[in-house]
Every structure is written in structure tokens, then in C-alpha cells.
Design a protein around this nucleic acid. Structure first.
Lengths: 140, 140
DNA sequence: TTTGCTGCAAATCCTTTGCAGAGGT
DNA sequence: ACCTCTGCAAAGGATTTGCAGCAAA
């Protein structure tokens, strides 16, 4: 899976992936650092960040935008959903849409955020021409 | 609207709101700072941040979690949706679900993120008892 | 042997905060 | 007048990056 892009499966990368898949919560980079440190005491935070970026880029894990400015990570890469408490920010990590349409969670549902993900026309064009992504349109 | 909570409509707060409603993009705090600065040259970034927090807290604007760690703000407070380019992070700010079910946008749709917002049982209990939100459950 | 990866530490970026004075209401 | 808000500047927290050596393939 990593091979396609000249990526190596290092001990650190492997342990990060294993630890992340061991839990069903959504740890932050720093929490993952603590988890990994128990097995690889000399690992550095920089390595954690670099690998989380790589692993989510290659689709092995998911990067979540939590409400706060702190990013959280999900060892599951398959499509699933969450519900977040708007007061304490706690996530219920395993909302299965098929089931929850029938059975309500123990949260009171107030509303939802829905965001489509796609490719914009500019990027589609540069992609066809073999170029990197278009400018970042910082005004959005 | 602000009166309910002892909030004052200061010149700075007013200009921030006006500038944010003038554009249909989703500027970051820093970009809003530049916009406001043209009219109030002595305004400070801290004031921008404080007011964006207050205005989104009182429901006048929306705080968005963009893919990156940088927060963006939306002058519209009504319920509407976005589509983000996964490569350049650009947002199409005005997806009207009712329309887009029929007419596709000019983005190629790859998938979507759906997040429910609600209140968890712990917070519901403390709320009934008149207490603040439950602990932050930092493990999520 | 190549070149991607690591630990370390410094740097950077975004955001928050303490304070004394200004300004809404 | 009261009390929230402001500008300023410093602090804070999360994330990124430069570098020289290390280790997958």
C-alpha cells in the first residue's frame, strides 16, 4: 500500500499505525506520541506528526477536524460517521448510518454538518496536464 | 440580538460583521483583520479574534473547521453547505442541497463528510442540574 | 548503496491572554 | 458611572522544518 509512492514501512510508522488501530477513540498527535513512546521511548514528536500526515495522505488512517484547533486521528480508514457533543466536544466514534436511521443514539440530535469532498475544475485541469494542485485560493 | 447577554455593539464589532457579510468567501481571522484594518487602521488582531468568537457564539456568523489548522469564518448564519477541493482546499460557499440534488456543481463529487451535532447524556444531566458542560473526555 | 526516515531542537504559525485605559449604554 | 471592550505585547500551544546521521529496500 505504501510501496506505490516510495514510502518505507519503518518501525516507527508501524507502531504508530498499530497503536492507532488498537483504540477506538480519536487521539491527538500528542496522545499518540505518548502511546508510541511506551514502545519506542526515543521516538520524537516530529516523527509522529510526519507519519500521521503520511498515513492519512496514503489513506491508511483519517485526519479529523475537531471543533478545536487540535487535530485528531482515526485508525479506521473506512467510511463511518461521528457525533460530537457541542458542549464538551466528546465524540461518539462509531455511528453507523444504516443502523442509526432506525435506532437513535443516546445523544439528542440538534443538527448536522454535511460537506462534500471533490475536485474543483482548476485542479482537474492541472491534473490532466500532470501539474500539482492549483493555487490555494486563500480568499475562501 | 447581542443585548440578551450584556454584549455591546462597538464600532469594531460592527465593522467586522459588515466586512464579513460583504464577501461570499470564508476569510481567516488574519484576512478579516486586513479587511477591517482598511476602515479602522488601529484595530488589533486580538480584537478580531475576540469578536469572531463572540459573534459566532451568539449565532451571527459561523466558524468553519477548514481542512488545515486555520479557522475560517462565514458571514452567513443560515443553514447552508459547502464543497471543498481536496487538493487546493478551495470552498464553494453556496451549495444549496435542494438544488444540487438535481443540478451537479462543477466539482467532481468524490464523497462527503457528515457530522451530527447534539448533546451527550452527561451534558444533558449537568444542564438539568444547572452546571457547566461535563469534562472534555480528552480521550476521544 | 541509495535515498527516505529519524531524533533533536529551533522556528513558525495561529490563537489566546493580562493589563491599563477607552468607550458603549 | 459601570463594566465591557480595546490596543498592545507577550505568552501559549500545536505543528513544521533544517540538519546530520541512521536504516529500509
Amino acid at each position: 500500500m505504501l510501496k506505490q509512492s516510495n514510502l518505507r514501512m519503518t518501525r516507527q510508522r508501524m507502531v504508530i499505525l498499530e497503536e492507532l488501530r488498537k483504540v477506538n477513540t480519536h487521539p491527538s498527535a500528542d496522545e499518540i506520541y505518548e502511546m508510541v513512546r511506551k514502545r519506542l521511548p526515543r521516538v520524537s514528536l516530529g516523527t509522529i506528526y510526519r507519519n500521521l500526515e503520511i498515513l492519512s495522505g496514503s489513506g491508511e488512517i483519517q485526519k479529523l477536524d475537531s471543533g478545536s484547533s487540535l487535530k485528531r486521528f482515526d485508525g479506521r480508514a473506512d467510511c463511518h460517521h461521528h457525533i460530537r457533543c457541542e458542549r464538551c466536544d466528546r465524540l461518539d466514534p462509531g455511528v453507523d448510518l444504516n443502523t442509526c436511521v432506525r435506532d437513535f443514539t443516546d445523544f439528542s440530535v440538534i443538527g448536522h454538518k454535511l460537506e462534500f469532498v471533490g475536485v474543483c475544475p482548476d485542479c482537474r485541469r492541472s491534473s490532466e496536464a500532470g501539474l500539482p494542485a492549483a493555487n490555494n485560493h486563500p480568499e475562501d
